[in-house]
Nucleic acid binder design. Structure first.
Lengths: 234, 234
DNA sequence: GCGCCAATTTGATCGATGTCAAAAACAGAT
DNA sequence: ATCTGTTTTTGACATCGATCAAATTGGCGC
């Protein structure tokens, strides 16, 4: 177990890019000098390689996390042992923060889906801070609100749209707003995108090929859209 | 438009049962005398008959609600005009409270699914209160946390379980915990239960009949379970 | 109890998606 | 550039659940 080499668990290193991401989270972006310092002091930075477990369902929840770089997969197992992704967390996303006041145990598994850097916040410390500092409480509220809205959107998306529609929606969220042609690059493996959209990888692949007749070309991670407006139609 | 007769929009009537429900909401249950009074003063009570719109997607969000009695359906339309339920709110549930700090427009349609009494909270007033009173901020956090957890559970449930499994889960949440036989009564139409579980009504009906071979008997709104433990197995 | 409207069930069918297996494309290391 | 292991695509299939239509049941007022 080369734990030191592999995990690089360090609470002082924080490069500029990661710092910028951290400061733009709903959690920290609105904080003033003093509150910010106190929040930062409850935080440590953790770096993990691909496919490392962050926590498991049922464990005591003593921290929540913010993704600084890389990706994290939250998933559950059904009775047969099949995994289903519940959420894919990208840089800037926070996870397990709903346990601040909602429970004491993690409710699903979390593992890295790439080499990943995380900010780890001690649950109890932030609880205490939120009770003392108004702006921290407000930051918590903002973060929870945003997260709740995206999760409700996820339910709506699952129940309302077919696979090609979900993929089209995803592409559109990454496209510049005008109606002409566009080209984007996926920030991660298609594997992860499938999990994000609640699809099996094969279904994602087929959805892409369905979208070819709407002018979508896929080569590796590069997606070219002939007509953004046309994609909105279906 | 017999608005006065039909809507009975009164902000003073609040019978004992409704009051008890209201006081057990995460929003109010933890509040002390003074904060409680201030919250109550931002609230009004609204009674609606079945199938009345509460708000529509895209409207300015100037209030959030708590269900006191009856049921509320949150839904969206897809491009073809098909409706999909996103959430069914029961007595004690709060909805649209994520817009306190998350946006200014309602994100889906809300309509009553029975004769329903609602507590209406003025969004801006509660925003102001939450900034002033710590315990109100904390109540908001608790409420959002709980709501977020149940919504994530909903995603997991949709992605992980088949129709009969979802129905079995639902029944189990309403059963006394022992392993023997049990009998429960649905608090609403099967229509609503289908929406709650993300199913078409026909699919719910078929799920029930699948569960017959696991010892589940359905007659009207009464559901009899031969062996609760057996139901847990699948 | 009867009649009527609404809710639910059932049947038949279709489309969408998961699953398994194999081929192909890709990426990183040598 | 080549090799190798992984990711992605494709094909063949099975399954689930949606949809439409029709039959049945249930609730409720009279």
């Amino acid at each position: 177990m080369e734990e030191t080499a592999e995990m690089m668990n360090s609470n002082f290193k924080l490069n500029n890019r990661d710092r910028a991401v951290l400061m733009k989270t709903p959690f920290l972006t609105s904080l003033s000098g003093n509150s910010l310092v106190r929040m930062m002091s409850t935080m440590s930075v953790i770096s993990l390689t691909n496919r490392k477990s962050i926590f498991r369902e049922g464990e005591d929840a003593d921290a929540f996390y913010c993704v600084l770089s890389g990706y994290v997969r939250l998933y559950q197992l059904n009775r047969d042992g099949r995994e289903a992704d519940i959420r894919i967390c990208s840089p800037g996303d926070t996870f397990a923060e709903c346990l601040l006041y909602g429970g004491t145990k993690y409710r699903h598994h979390a593992q890295t889906a790439e080499a990943t850097t995380l900010a780890r916040f001690d649950m109890q410390s932030v609880r205490d801070l939120a009770e003392q500092e108004r702006d921290i409480a407000k930051a918590v509220i903002t973060s929870l609100s945003k997260h709740l809205m995206t999760t409700m959107d996820c339910v709506a998306n699952d129940r309302l749209h077919t696979a090609p529609q979900r993929v089209a929606n995803y592409i559109l969220t990454r496209c510049p707003v005008d109606g002409g042609p566009a080209s984007i690059r996926l920030p991660f493996q298609k594997n992860l995108l499938a999990g994000m959209l609640g699809l099996a990888p094969e279904a994602l692949s087929r959805a892409f090929s369905t979208l070819r007749r709407t002018g979508v070309t896929v080569r590796g991670r590069v997606i070219q859209v002939g007509d953004v407006q046309a994609l909105r139609e279906i």
